[in-house]
Simulated assay, not measured.
Amino acid sequence: MSKRLLFIANPRSGKGQIKDHLADILDIMIKAGYQVSVHITQSGGDATDQTIAQAENFDRIVCSGGDGTLDEVVTGMMKLEPSQRKPIGYIPAGSTNDFGNSLGIDKNMLNAARMSVSDNLFPCDIGRFNSDSFVYVAAFGLFTEVSYATPQDMKNILGHAAYIIEGAKQLRDIPSFRMQVEYDGNVIYDEFIFGMITNSKSVGGFQGIIRGDIGLNDGVFEVTLIKMPRNPIELNEILGFMTGIISDSDMVYAFQTEEIKFLSSDVVPWTLDGEFGGKHDVVVIKDESHAVEIAIE
């Protein structure tokens, strides 16, 4: 009896290149012994809904799109009981593909398709964000609105430059958030312009931002919190840290933890894997170790 595979494709990710490779991708999946059903996403959240509704009918779910598409599939899988979750394959087709790069998934779509049906499954950590989930980054503050506020067509044409162009507009008036942060018995009370909780070797296509020994299934997140600069010297110090020119800064908190809590007097907008994650005054983030299996080479 053939194994069953659901292929969920976002036709708008990247430059819509999935359209040029669809027949070859399906051929690879069929030759790997799968009976394939295809679903083209119709709107935001569609991949999540399809995963929840269809997971029990398939042996594997493979998605093609950006990290946001993968996030939707993982979000759907995380809403199921662990025993109901199925292995996920990922064929990156977005503008940045941070998580695909971290997993070592080939940028060539046909090579990635071969990996997506591999029997080599990586048990990956997934982040719990209150009642939601994320694959590789939860963030607030400077630049975090860029990824979901930047039009898809602009991302397709300009790639990373689109994020930089849109992000530069925010530098005129840097917003800050006064927050209490609790982790591992520690309490920080400070004013931040940016924060990210990550499980990835790059964010926004840029490597070197995240420090420490990074493992995608080590049970901990990498946390980076940037304080509000009070003068140009402090701002230059932050930029030096973020670009790797300096290795340490009193303007930046950087540590690892498996659970962290944020409390603020005002609601703070968050992004989850580059998509809007809502506005919250209380956020609890937990590392759910080895929560899903992702096919790799």
Rank of each mutant, 00 (worst) to 15 (best):
M1P: 08
S2C: 10
L5Y: 06
A9Q: 13
R12S: 14
G14H: 02
G14N: 04
I18C: 09
D27M: 13
H39I: 05
I40R: 14
G45F: 03
G45M: 06
D46I: 00
T51C: 09
E56I: 14
S64I: 07
S64L: 09
D67V: 00
T69K: 02
T69Q: 02
L70P: 00
L70T: 01
L70I: 01
V73G: 08
M78Y: 00
K79I: 06
L80R: 09
S83G: 07
I88G: 12
G89N: 04
G89M: 06
G89L: 06
A93Y: 00
A93V: 09
A93F: 01
T96P: 01
S102D: 06
S102L: 05
L103H: 03
R114C: 07
S118C: 02
L121A: 07
F122W: 08
D125T: 03
R128A: 08
N130V: 02
D132T: 11
S133L: 05
F134Q: 07
Y136T: 00
A138T: 06
F140G: 04
F143D: 14
D153H: 15
M154R: 13
N156F: 02
G159S: 03
I164W: 09
E166P: 12
K169V: 02
L171F: 08
R172E: 13
S176K: 11
D184L: 03
G185H: 06
E191H: 09
E191A: 06
I193M: 04
F194E: 05
I197S: 08
K201V: 13
S202M: 12
G205L: 03
Q207I: 07
G208P: 14
G208Y: 03
R211L: 05
I214D: 02
G215A: 06
E222L: 04
T224D: 04
I226L: 03
P229F: 04
R230D: 14
N231E: 03
L235K: 10
I238Q: 08
G240A: 11
G240W: 01
F241D: 02
D248Y: 11
D248M: 10
D250Q: 13
D250L: 12
A254S: 15
A254Y: 14
F255Y: 11
E258L: 11
E259F: 10
W270C: 06
D273A: 06
G274H: 01
E275W: 01
G277W: 02
K279F: 03
H280Y: 11
D281T: 14
I285P: 08
K286F: 02
D287A: 15
E288A: 13
V292A: 05
E293Q: 15
I296V: 15
